[in-house]
Design a protein around this nucleic acid. Structure first.
Lengths: 165, 165
DNA sequence: CCTTAACTTCACAAATTTCTGAAAGTAGCG
DNA sequence: CGCTACTTTCAGAAATTTGTGAAGTTAAGG
């Protein structure tokens, strides 16, 4: 009900959410800057922000934005887009895309499996320790398959709930 | 085939596995000392080690062991046992117990959900950002249920593979 | 081409985290 | 009751991580 034409959200409220969600991400193991940048994108209206918008909103240097975004892109939590006809770059969080990245723990799991296999070999499959490692390995192999099926079910569910593909 | 009565494993090989598996755990977000301690327990024959054994094997101070173990116990990755009739404490990794702790990310997820709910409220459920947050929230709620069912299936599977309950 | 707007890289200062030695508990055992 | 064998706590040194300013790079637009 103000006379502003674009209904600007209360920056105070946005910032409050950004910081509190970022804090949770940090606690879960993400670095601080990537967490804040990601939270900011998640709570933006378009799901996209430019480098300078991020820099301004979060009060951090362009260098920090650059580093954070590079990391986030690497783990597929955001994607980068070039605005045609401008040097400006836009960073985007696809609603449906990012938590699939959580799934990409898969790469991590593969490495765990590798390390465990080596362990089973070098300690001996017939030793108590070897057996313990083998069981852990079996667990991860199980998880591998389950996660894939689970994400399949989620896509179906999501369709039900929100319609859009 | 040596004349040693207890068939000591090659400490070299054990150490190699411990360090390489610990490295993976670190990369996944665990702190260094807890990771090393945990890997050492995982590759021990009995699945238990005393404080001084850990201290010696990993070449770290008793203080470091104490800190690492406190953390691991807190997140339920190891349990502590008192040897009756001795001040000595024993730390144990239950083969089937520890990866259930991975599941206890559950607590983490609950906090994420809380933060997201607040975000939806304060940004407005009818805004684009609000809708994005709501979808993310729905995803986590979905995961909650799935993980529980998945662990159920694992227990069945484990029974098949290894027999022991 | 040259200018300029944008992003990236790099070296370093600051903040944080990690590990240790030393001191202080705590409980078994004589 | 106190000695002894362990473990935990704590303050601080050392290592690591983080974020910045400044210089470097790249491409759009004149």
């Amino acid at each position: 009900m103000t006379d502003e034409k674009a209904p600007e959200r209360d920056p105070e409220a946005v910032s409050k959410f950004v910081e509190s969600f970022a804090a949770q991400l940090v606690e879960a193991g993400l670095q601080r800057m990537p967490a804040r940048v990601f939270a900011a994108l998640l709570s933006s209206d378009t799901g996209t922000l430019t480098s300078s918008e991020l820099s301004e909103q979060l009060k951090i240097s362009p260098a920090a934005v650059s580093g954070a975004v590079r990391y986030l892109a690497q783990v597929h939590m955001v994607s980068r887009e070039r605005e045609p006809g401008s040097r400006r770059e836009r960073y985007r969080v696809h609603a449906g895309q990012w938590y699939e990245a959580l799934t990409n723990r898969e790469a991590v799991i593969k490495r765990w499996e590798h390390a465990l296999r080596e362990g089973v070999d070098s300690l001996g499959a017939d030793t108590p320790a070897g057996r313990r490692l083998a069981e852990t390995l079996a667990f991860f192999e199980f998880i591998d398959g389950e996660v894939i099926a689970m994400m399949e079910r989620w896509r179906v569910r999501r369709e039900e709930l929100f319609g859009a593909s």
